[in-house]
Computed example of a mutant assay.
Amino acid sequence: MSIVKFLTSKTFFKHLAIAFGIVVVLVFVLLKFLDIKTNHGEEIPVPDLSKMQVKIAQEKLEELGLELILLDTVDFRNDMPPYSIVEQDPKAENTVKNGRKIYVKVNAGEYDDVTLPALKGKTFRQVSANIKSLGLKEGKITYKPHLAKDEVLAVTQKGKTLKAGDKVKKNSTLDFVLGDGKEFYDEQTFDKEETTIETPVEDAGE
């Protein structure tokens, strides 16, 4: 049988119809499989993971068919428990498909250390701006007789005198001892009131 006759024969069209039917069935089965695999049409509400420890959040997501991915640790926030989740993406109540990754950031365990710069000998105005930029707080201010007014004479924390290079926790409070600008006058007063102590002279007869 020639090719032309075969292509126009009933046998060819019969085989073609069978082949077409097989393709349709295979496509239908494949689409059904993909629907089941991806839970087509089924979406899962993302739970609120805020303030949860990573392990607990991970278990909760796994129960829902979701995956937790830890991105980073953020600077310590005192309004959140240490090592708890502070940010998540997607946000809570968004709907996602099964197997979706939920990205989170975790609170640090405590405040970071800050290296104390040279503060002694500077004016309090200079120092105030400096410590605020470092995330530190101003505490108690006391004055001591000194020639220069508001010059920083000492920096302390909980009674301990600090120096340049010491480490303190971010967000901690520093106390300051400042000059009162009155030492010059106090010295004048002291000079006026100064008395001379004479050494007793021994009697010549003794």
Score class of each variant (00 low, 15 high):
residue 2 S to L: 04
residue 6 F to S: 12
residue 8 T to H: 11
residue 10 K to D: 13
residue 11 T to M: 03
residue 14 K to R: 07
residue 14 K to F: 05
residue 19 A to M: 11
residue 19 A to P: 07
residue 19 A to W: 03
residue 19 A to L: 09
residue 22 I to D: 04
residue 30 L to D: 12
residue 31 L to H: 05
residue 33 F to H: 05
residue 33 F to W: 01
residue 35 D to M: 02
residue 36 I to R: 06
residue 37 K to S: 11
residue 38 T to K: 05
residue 40 H to E: 12
residue 40 H to L: 15
residue 42 E to G: 01
residue 44 I to S: 06
residue 45 P to Q: 11
residue 46 V to Y: 07
residue 49 L to K: 01
residue 52 M to D: 10
residue 53 Q to F: 10
residue 54 V to K: 10
residue 55 K to G: 06
residue 56 I to C: 01
residue 59 E to V: 10
residue 61 L to A: 15
residue 62 E to C: 07
residue 63 E to Q: 09
residue 70 L to C: 05
residue 70 L to K: 13
residue 71 L to H: 04
residue 74 V to Q: 06
residue 76 F to M: 05
residue 79 D to Q: 08
residue 79 D to V: 04
residue 81 P to R: 10
residue 82 P to H: 14
residue 90 P to L: 08
residue 91 K to S: 02
residue 92 A to H: 02
residue 92 A to S: 12
residue 93 E to F: 05
residue 94 N to L: 12
residue 96 V to H: 01
residue 97 K to E: 09
residue 97 K to D: 05
residue 97 K to V: 00
residue 100 R to C: 04
residue 104 V to G: 02
residue 105 K to M: 09
residue 109 G to I: 13
residue 110 E to R: 13
residue 112 D to C: 02
residue 113 D to W: 13
residue 114 V to I: 10
residue 114 V to D: 00
residue 115 T to G: 05
residue 117 P to C: 01
residue 121 G to D: 07
residue 124 F to H: 06
residue 124 F to K: 02
residue 127 V to I: 06
residue 128 S to A: 11
residue 129 A to P: 00
residue 129 A to N: 08
residue 131 I to P: 00
residue 131 I to H: 01
residue 133 S to A: 08
residue 134 L to T: 04
residue 134 L to P: 02
residue 135 G to F: 09
residue 137 K to D: 06
residue 138 E to W: 01
residue 140 K to S: 13
residue 142 T to S: 07
residue 143 Y to L: 04
residue 148 A to M: 06
residue 148 A to K: 12
residue 149 K to Q: 09
residue 152 V to D: 09
residue 153 L to M: 11
residue 154 A to R: 07
residue 155 V to S: 03
residue 155 V to T: 01
residue 157 Q to S: 04
residue 158 K to V: 06
residue 159 G to E: 11
residue 159 G to M: 15
residue 160 K to T: 15
residue 161 T to M: 15
residue 163 K to Q: 14
residue 166 D to C: 04
residue 167 K to R: 14
residue 169 K to S: 02
residue 170 K to N: 03
residue 171 N to E: 15
residue 172 S to F: 08
residue 177 V to Y: 05
residue 180 D to R: 13
residue 181 G to W: 01
residue 182 K to I: 09
residue 185 Y to G: 14
residue 186 D to N: 14
residue 187 E to S: 06
residue 189 T to D: 07
residue 191 D to P: 02
residue 192 K to P: 06
residue 192 K to E: 15
residue 193 E to T: 15
residue 194 E to R: 08
residue 194 E to C: 04
residue 196 T to E: 15
residue 197 I to M: 07
residue 198 E to M: 03
residue 199 T to P: 00
residue 200 P to N: 12
residue 203 D to Q: 05
residue 204 A to T: 04
residue 205 G to H: 12
